[in-house]
Amino acid sequence: MLVSDFDFDLPPELIALRPARPRDTARLLVVTGDRDLADRTVLDLPGILRAGDVLVFNDTRVIPAQLEGRRGDARIGATLHKRIDLRRWQAFIRNAKRVKEGDRITFAADVSAIAEERRPDGSFLLGFEGEEPVEVLLERAGRMPLPPYIAGKRETDAADREDYQTMFAREDGAVAAPTAALHFTDRLIASLDEVGVKREMLTLHVGAGTFLPVKAQDTADHVMHAEWGRIDGATAERLNDIRSDGGRLIAVGTTSLRLLESAARPDGRIAQFAGDTEIFITPGYRFRAVDGLMTNFHLPRSTLMMLVSAMMGRDRMMAAYAHAIAAGYRFYSYGDSSLLIPDDD
């Protein structure tokens, strides 16, 4: 399948640079089976979902993983994207040609790291110096790692510390937000509770690889990045029981969906899971664990555009995106959202 099959033109003015305020007032495009597309808002979710359905959220917390520093006279940028152990992170390096293995990079606030190893993908393994936990160092020296399509248009500021974090964030480790969950607020959760919609949590630490372009021409030649995730046994059993009782499992965000499908057995039952997932979902994939997906609007030619096309069909999603563009929906991480339910009978 050609990557160009998932291309479309997006007017740059539709790329959201700030979230909706309040968050739950963002628009929501509902795409269900063969029914007409429905223009709603996120606040309408309690009236769209059914009692007994379960929303599955990713409770990862975005860390300030973007660092600016120097190696000698050279200016160096680092974006951490995967934890290796307590003191070492894999990082994409800006101006990497000025860095050699063994070099010390000095960041702000007296934070420093040794470039221990250059990886085959061009990234570096950084070992942070000192005794303080790396999380403490990052809080002192790092910035929130806004996606390039936002960071290229404006400076990161204090508001992003809150805006680019979901209300469920509790497990440190992500370098990109699970953005579908950015729309949820206390009042929306209270309304969902009132109508009997349940919620569960899992953890997948989103890596910066989610923003890497697909360079292959054929989807079969693309190598998917790995991300670490966990579903505990008790959560897996509750999700299985809900589906057995007729409730629908709605993943909030592609990160939740990818981890659920990674943990699913051939019969659709979800198993306990802890480890890396490199699952790459393209049209033709048979979903085993998930009955629907709430997700923001994705980049052209991206693996996530392929994923939503796998769920709803490529033609259906291309039509939905054409509608969203014509109707002025806001795109990407701080943008509006969609609810995809293949079978809404």
Rank of each mutant, 00 (worst) to 15 (best):
K198M: 15
P178C: 06
H222D: 08
R18Q: 14
Q272F: 04
V290C: 05
A16F: 02
M306E: 00
A65M: 02
L86C: 02
H183V: 10
A226K: 15
T25P: 04
A326D: 12
I63T: 04
P46F: 08
P148T: 09
G130Q: 08
R301M: 03
R94S: 14
T282Y: 11
L67Q: 03
H81W: 09
V54D: 04
P22G: 04
K198V: 06
P22I: 08
V3C: 10
L55Y: 01
V197H: 08
R170I: 01
A91P: 08
A220D: 15
A115F: 03
A289T: 01
I105G: 04
F280Q: 04
R98H: 15
S4D: 13
G268W: 02
G130W: 09
R88F: 04
D218R: 14
D315W: 03
E117K: 15
G142W: 00
F184W: 06
L182F: 07
S302H: 00
I93S: 01
I270A: 03
D34K: 12
D157C: 10
A176M: 10
V290Q: 03
H323E: 01
Q66E: 14
D9W: 01
H183S: 09
A226H: 10
A216P: 14
D160I: 01
R98V: 08
A208V: 12
R269S: 13
D9S: 15
W89M: 06
D291I: 00
R199W: 10
A109H: 06
R248T: 02
E139S: 09
P145G: 03
R104H: 05
A289H: 05
F280E: 00
Q217P: 02
L2Q: 12
A274L: 02
R286G: 03
I281H: 06
D344G: 11
L239Y: 11
F107Y: 08
Y285R: 01
Y334H: 01
S256T: 08
L340Y: 11
P12L: 13
D9N: 14
P213Y: 13
R170L: 03
I242S: 06
P133F: 07
I250E: 04
V42G: 04
D241Y: 05
V136M: 06
N58V: 05
Q66A: 14
F8A: 08
M311D: 00
A177G: 00
S4A: 14
N296Q: 07
M305R: 01
R50M: 04
I189Q: 10
A115N: 12
L55M: 07
R143Y: 05
P178G: 05
S333D: 04
D34N: 13
P283L: 06
R94E: 12
L37Y: 12
L188I: 11
T185W: 09
L137R: 13
L192C: 07
L293S: 00
A115M: 09
A174S: 15
D232W: 10
T41S: 15
V3H: 08
S309W: 04
D276C: 05
